[in-house]
């Protein structure tokens, strides 16, 4: 890690690859649902990257890594509990009418020009999240690496952006 802090990219890549199984073990131990494990593992990797300047080479590496992995896994667990308490995912709720053709009418206000203007009016962080995730189609991990924003923050920003856009374009 000390070499990685000094900018040795090869050492950094080797270190991250070697620690991947350990991170997965820690995350699996704290995060009950297997479908979320990979998402949390990526959040851990991004956090390690963001806080790599806090590692003190005079101290052991594993407790530093384990603390980050545990913290991110617990954050994910809390986030999921909060979401499950307040929200229900119902894909059918987005459909206004059973016939897909009929929904086109509802979608018409989101014309290209109107949508661009509405996106341009969004607060900077929400606009950036929409640009990376929805317009450029990047994955959460890619968008996070490019923008330096955490996955959790990107999710919140894109969720708020869509809520704002829906309100503005449909008047709901």
């Amino acid at each position: 890690m000390a070499a990685a802090q000094d900018g040795d990219r090869r050492a950094y890549e080797t270190l991250l690859r070697q620690t991947l199984p350990y991170i997965r073990t820690v995350v699996r131990g704290l995060n009950a649902t297997p479908d979320r494990v990979e998402e949390v593992v990526q959040e851990v990797l991004l956090t390690v990257h963001r806080v790599r300047h806090t590692y003190d080479p005079a101290r052991p590496f594993r407790p530093w890594l384990a603390a980050i992995a545990r913290r991110r896994a617990i954050d994910a667990l809390r986030r999921r509990r909060r979401t499950e308490t307040h929200e229900i995912f119902d894909e059918a709720a987005y459909e206004t009418f059973a016939d897909p053709e009929a929904n086109r009418h509802q979608e018409r206000p989101a014309s290209a020009a109107g949508l661009s203007a509405a996106v341009a009016d969004l607060p900077a962080q929400q606009r950036e999240a929409v640009r990376l995730l929805k317009l450029r189609g990047l994955s959460l991990a890619e968008a996070s690496a490019e923008s330096g924003t955490s996955i959790a923050a990107l999710k919140v920003n894109v969720h708020r952006a869509i809520k704002t856009l829906r309100k503005r374009l449909t008047g709901d």
Binding site: A4, G7, R9, R10, Y12, E13, L16, R17, L20, E38, V41, Q42, L45, L46, H49, R52, S139, A141, E142, A145
Partner: peptide, 13 residues
């Protein structure tokens, strides 16, 4: 995805 992310992070380290 994790492997790809590691490559990206290492490339910009």
């Amino acid at each position: 995805d994790a492997e790809r992310l590691i490559e990206m992070l290492a490339a910009e380290a």
